Simulated assay, not measured.
Amino acid sequence: MAHTPVNHPARPIYRAIGGLTGLYLVVFGALGIIESAGNPFFAQDDTQVLGQGTNLGFSLLSILLGVLVLAGTALGRNIDVVINQWLAYALMVISLGGLAFIRTDANLFNFSIVTVMVIMVAGLVLLMCGMYGKVGSDEERKAFEKARLVL
């Protein structure tokens, strides 16, 4: 049995927060495409959107990830939980990779420190939404509560 709560009372709030995170990624990506239009795909210049360094490649990736989060939020039925958890881990890896290469020529996504922090926070928020958004039957909820009270 997983250690994530089933039918958490604040589940709709977490689902809405996950959707807002996806919406932020889409808006950031769209603004990034507008700002970096005409630049090379992985340009390493001073292009900034909402105070974050970006380029065309990272803007497109942000839109893709945001659309995936929004699609999962719209579908629900624990699909959003799986999508939020996997994309949360992906965002954290991207953020740590960006931090590792921030002052090198390998900074493909033109990250700045602010970008690293925002992407890491977005990943942590999606992970939280994935942990508390699980839906299940009453039997699953009772089994989780029984196991939780034993611990």
Rank of each mutant, 00 (worst) to 15 (best):
M1R: 11
A2V: 11
A2D: 14
T4E: 02
P5C: 00
V6G: 02
N7K: 03
H8Y: 02
P9M: 02
P12Q: 12
A16M: 06
I17Q: 03
G18R: 01
G18F: 06
T21W: 11
L23M: 14
Y24W: 09
L25K: 08
V26R: 04
V27K: 05
V27M: 10
F28G: 14
G29K: 04
A30M: 12
A30D: 00
G32K: 06
I34T: 10
E35L: 04
G38K: 04
G38A: 04
G38W: 01
P40A: 15
F41V: 14
F42M: 13
D45T: 09
Q48R: 14
Q52E: 07
F58S: 11
F58A: 07
L61F: 10
S62K: 08
S62Y: 08
V67S: 01
L68C: 15
A71S: 12
A71G: 09
T73D: 01
T73Q: 10
A74M: 08
A74G: 00
G76N: 06
G76V: 05
G76A: 09
R77P: 03
D80I: 03
V81D: 09
V81Q: 05
V81L: 00
I83E: 00
N84W: 02
A90P: 02
A90T: 13
I94H: 02
S95C: 08
G97M: 07
L99E: 14
L99C: 11
D105R: 12
N107K: 03
F109M: 03
N110V: 04
F111I: 05
S112D: 15
I113D: 03
V114M: 12
T115N: 04
T115A: 05
T115D: 01
V116P: 13
L124C: 06
L124W: 01
L127Q: 06
M128E: 12
C129N: 02
C129A: 13
G130W: 02
Y132V: 14
Y132R: 14
D138R: 05
E140R: 05
R141L: 09
K142N: 08
K142R: 12
A143P: 07
F144R: 12
E145H: 03
E145D: 11
E145T: 09
K146G: 02
K146N: 12
A147I: 01
A147F: 02
